[in-house]
């Protein structure tokens, strides 16, 4: 995959380059601020952009705003936002545009190299990769809405794991149930959320976005 990295800490930037190169990805650009990120995406048209939320000059949410701009201008480019803190507001800002190819992870997750590179692959393929903490935060904020009230507790748990980007097999493994059982839950979720039958992957993304959109 062709990847652009935007991260102002030189230490982390170097670490990311090392990990991704090790997994055979091509780093087409590694930049330190939002402006350079926008330019790099324009020049290189990468598969994925990995974006730190806090970057110069103000160290607030420059990266996130750049990520949203990229999603508008280049919907095909997958965006993986990562930061040292999880702000639910940031996540819902980013996810409020209803399409896949987006992720939001804590920087700590990078340490689990395989999971991290899997997340990048999912995002590049149009899926989602939400940090469990993001999902927890969003669920907390969403608890009392009509959509979620219609789901059973188990269905809510399944939806949360879907938001993280887990496959049915992974969810089944987590809950120690059969994959069949998970498929049934997922089907119920699709039905309760009123998602029309279509390509399974696409429906998963829509389900996740529906519940985020409910906030």
């Amino acid at each position: 995959m062709r990847i652009v990295i935007a991260e102002d800490s030189a230490v982390i930037r170097a670490g990311l380059k090392e990990i991704l190169a090790d997994r055979g990805h091509e780093i087409v650009a590694a930049v330190g601020d939002a402006e350079a990120l926008l330019k790099a995406v324009e020049t290189h048209d990468p598969d994925v952009a990995i974006v730190d939320v806090r970057m110069p000059p103000h160290h607030t949410d420059e990266g996130l705003r750049a990520a949203i701009a990229i999603r508008r201008a280049y919907p095909k480019v997958g965006i993986l936002v990562f930061s040292q803190y999880i702000e639910t507001r940031y996540a819902s800002d980013l996810l409020s545009m209803r399409s896949g190819g987006v992720g939001y992870l804590l920087k700590d997750r990078v340490a689990d190299v395989t999971e991290f590179t899997d997340a990048i692959t999912r995002v590049a393929a149009g899926g989602t990769a939400l940090d469990p903490e993001v999902v927890t935060g969003l669920l907390r904020a969403t608890r009392h809405t009509a959509v979620l009230d219609a789901l059973t507790a188990r269905e809510r748990d399944v939806l949360a794991l879907m938001a993280e980007g887990r496959s049915n097999a992974a969810i089944a493994d987590r809950f120690k149930v059969s994959e069949r059982a998970v498929e049934k839950h997922v089907g119920n979720i699709f039905a309760k959320l009123g998602l029309p039958p279509s390509d399974e992957d696409h429906r998963r993304v829509l389900a996740v976005l529906a519940f985020i959109g409910e906030r």
Partner: peptide, 8 residues
């Protein structure tokens, strides 16, 4: 974070 990445 960088340390964790390398160890990972």
């Amino acid at each position: 974070v960088a340390v964790a990445m390398k160890l990972g």
